[in-house]
Simulated assay, not measured.
Amino acid sequence: MPSDSVSRPVPGIEISLAAQTLTLFSADSFSISYPVSTALNGPGERQSSGCTPRGKHYVRAMLGDGFPVNTVFIARRPTGEVYSPELARQFPDRDWILSRILWLCGLEWGKNRGPGVDSFRRFIYIHGTPDSEPMGVPRSHGCIRMRNADVVDLYRRVTPGTPVLIR
């Protein structure tokens, strides 16, 4: 078999709900895995379900470039705050979205794109979370949570359009 026909992973991200990991594959066979935390409510695509949607997605938008690690975002906008334990005590019920946001868009009509199931309209992100939050345990409201250092590292390795498979 000619060497140019060797099967290589397609550059992109694969998220395993069962293993609670995110793996980034590159075109040159490099891969790196990070622990994540997906939805406490498990997998699912329905609007307002609090579940992590499955299937083929892509990174539609990336937010947070140039902001400090632990920058707090609300509605995709930096609040001017930097997360700290003191801030957490002030706002104990906040769902913290920190450091960087990779906003996902579904590619499968009727499954994760379109009325009632649209990942983009559900505001499904890969984002940072307080480092005190456990990884490897489903705890989110539907998003894919990562350690702040990990999401910053991932952010610098991908671009908008990067394929994402959630399985």
Rank of each mutant, 00 (worst) to 15 (best):
14 E>D: 11
15 I>E: 13
15 I>M: 06
16 S>A: 11
16 S>T: 13
16 S>L: 07
16 S>D: 12
19 A>V: 12
20 Q>I: 15
21 T>L: 12
21 T>G: 13
22 L>V: 08
22 L>K: 05
24 L>A: 04
24 L>R: 14
25 F>S: 05
25 F>G: 01
27 A>H: 11
27 A>L: 14
28 D>R: 12
28 D>G: 09
30 F>I: 03
31 S>D: 08
32 I>P: 02
33 S>L: 11
34 Y>E: 02
36 V>Y: 04
37 S>C: 03
38 T>M: 06
40 L>E: 14
42 G>Q: 15
42 G>N: 14
45 E>N: 12
47 Q>F: 15
48 S>H: 10
49 S>N: 10
49 S>D: 11
50 G>Q: 04
51 C>Q: 13
52 T>F: 08
52 T>R: 11
53 P>Q: 01
55 G>H: 07
56 K>C: 00
56 K>N: 03
57 H>A: 01
57 H>Q: 06
60 R>Y: 09
60 R>F: 02
61 A>K: 13
63 L>C: 03
63 L>I: 11
67 F>I: 09
68 P>L: 09
68 P>F: 13
69 V>M: 12
69 V>W: 03
69 V>H: 08
71 T>Y: 04
72 V>G: 01
72 V>L: 09
73 F>T: 07
73 F>V: 04
73 F>C: 04
74 I>Y: 15
74 I>Q: 15
76 R>L: 05
76 R>Y: 02
78 P>A: 06
78 P>N: 05
79 T>W: 05
79 T>D: 03
79 T>I: 09
80 G>P: 05
86 E>S: 12
86 E>K: 14
87 L>W: 10
87 L>G: 03
88 A>F: 09
88 A>V: 08
88 A>K: 13
88 A>Q: 15
89 R>F: 14
89 R>K: 15
90 Q>H: 14
90 Q>A: 12
91 F>D: 10
92 P>A: 11
93 D>W: 15
96 W>P: 13
98 L>P: 04
98 L>H: 10
98 L>K: 08
99 S>V: 02
103 W>P: 00
105 C>V: 05
105 C>F: 06
105 C>W: 08
105 C>H: 09
108 E>H: 02
110 G>I: 00
110 G>V: 02
113 R>D: 01
115 P>A: 00
115 P>F: 08
116 G>P: 05
117 V>R: 00
118 D>F: 00
125 Y>G: 07
125 Y>N: 09
125 Y>C: 04
128 G>F: 05
128 G>S: 01
128 G>V: 13
129 T>N: 02
131 D>N: 11
136 G>S: 07
136 G>E: 11
138 P>S: 10
140 S>P: 12
140 S>W: 06
141 H>L: 11
142 G>I: 10
143 C>K: 14
148 N>A: 07
150 D>H: 09
150 D>C: 03
152 V>I: 14
152 V>L: 10
155 Y>M: 05
